[in-house]
């Protein structure tokens, strides 16, 4: 029931998370920051703008990105398999990348290609994470994992650590905000969207927050307080990282993911497999 509610109200919830994040970010920079409802003000304002499009394909892909993102969340929360949800996420990336590379703006095309680099950095690790959940709880099923009487976080600390550093790649946060790179390519894939169509992409990113933090929540098993603590910790850690680090090159991101994070996760899986 609660899963269904979260799925349906995911954009609203994600908007709140995004608003809180903007405040936290401002406070970390000793600014006051916008109000909590700021994302919704932006949302309603964008609705009222005149619609400008490059061509229909591009505008359509923005909407498809939003739908795919929402459906992916539904698959994660209402379905029963983590792996399928991980693979579904590729569809959302597809819509974003096809939209980004369908226009002749160099920033957009570059952003789309960098989005692909993001994908090869986080996708294998997500698969490994799903597998390690299976090894510990004996199921890919999200309901079984949430009723698992134990502390997955203590059995897969390295996977959690790797996932902690993968979250900046998924949410476009600072050391790895390569596809979005506001100072460099001005938003990357989302640059050419405007007005109501930008709204779709903007809201899609809020849903991505819920998608990612659901995975973090799973690390608590059936101890929901631990899950919530982990989500809060991750949230603050990711923002701290965002505010305190500079952007890296995309090659460094891929290398970091492939030569540090994935071996760590594999090591963890080997240890779990031997432990059993």
């Amino acid at each position: 029931m609660i899963n269904l509610l979260i799925t349906i109200f995911a954009p609203v919830l994600g908007g709140f998370v995004f608003g809180i994040e903007r405040i936290i970010k401002a406070r970390m920079q000793s600014r006051i920051g916008p109000p909590v409802l700021q994302p919704f003000y932006d949302f309603f304002k964008l609705m009222d703008k005149r619609a400008y499009i490059i061509h229909s394909l591009h505008a359509l892909m923005g909407i498809m990105y939003f739908i795919a993102e929402w459906f992916t969340l539904a698959v994660l929360l209402l379905g029963n398999d983590l792996l399928i949800a991980v693979f579904f996420h590729v569809i959302a990336v597809l819509a974003l990348v096809i939209g980004a590379s369908s226009v002749r703006s160099p920033y957009s095309v570059l952003g789309g290609l960098r989005e692909l680099m993001h994908m090869i950095s986080y996708e294998p690790l997500m698969v490994l994470m799903a597998v390690s959940f299976y090894l510990i709880t004996g199921s890919f099923d999200i309901k079984t994992i949430l009723s698992f009487n134990g502390y997955p976080i203590f059995q897969m600390p390295l996977v959690f650590f790797a996932f902690l550093l993968v979250i900046p790649m998924m949410l476009q946060k600072s050391p790895f905000d390569i596809a979005e790179a506001h100072q460099e390519i001005i938003g990357g894939p989302e640059i050419e969207y405007s007005g109501p169509f930008y709204e779709a992409v903007y809201t899609g990113k809020w849903i991505e927050y819920i998608y990612v933090f659901t995975f973090v929540f799973l690390f608590g098993g059936n101890h929901y307080w631990l899950g919530i603590l982990l989500v809060i910790f991750t949230f603050i850690f990711v923002n701290l990282l965002d505010n305190s680090t500079a952007r890296l090159d995309y090659r460094k991101m891929v290398k970091f993911s492939w030569f540090v994070l994935i071996p760590l996760a594999v090591l963890n899986i080997i240890l779990i497999a031997m432990w059993r």
């Binding site: 903007r22 401002a26 600014r31 006051i32 920051g33 916008p34 109000p35 700021q38 003000y41 932006d42 964008l46 400008y52 506001h182 100072q183 001005i186 938003g187 640059i191 050419e192 969207y193 405007s194 930008y198």
Partner: peptide, 13 residues
């Protein structure tokens, strides 16, 4: 930014 203003750097938005 406390008024909600952002420096967007992008005319489309």
């Amino acid at each position: 930014e406390r008024f909600g203003a952002l420096n967007k750097g992008n005319p489309k938005q």
